[in-house]
Amino acid sequence: MADAPKLALVLMSPELERLHAAAMMGSVAAMSGMEVNIFVTMGATKMFLKETVEKQDFVLTDVGKTLLEKKVDLYYKLFEDAKEMGSLKVYICSLVSDLMDWKREDFLDIVEDIVGVVAFFGMAEGAQIVTV
């Protein structure tokens, strides 16, 4: 898989619709044979906590509200499916988890690991990097 085209997504926003856009791009890319690495940092980090998803405590704008109303499969489900069918890995920013005192076990099972920027750059080497 070393020669597979690579995509790296940097998620910063807590908004549901932005997470959804990233999940769509990431999952379609992974299922089309691309190697996808996702770095979750800043405001997006909280959205990968088990507690947030259990409480459906999302940040909603117009499209986000409609995603919920129409019961569309949300970002964590899309990432989960993509992980099963392709190469997609989700990493949490170590700075944010340290600052907020969130532990590995507080995060969703789709999360691969908690890493720093240097580790992420290593994974993203040669990839197209898209910030959402």
């Binding site: 769509m24 999952s27 379609v28 299922m31 089309s32 499969d73 069918m85």
Partner: peptide, 15 residues
């Protein structure tokens, strides 16, 4: 199913 659901289902089946 909404986009990209149908595509995902297709890819799963094709694999």
């Amino acid at each position: 199913s909404y986009c990209p659901g149908p595509l995902m289902e297709l890819i799963k089946t094709i694999k």
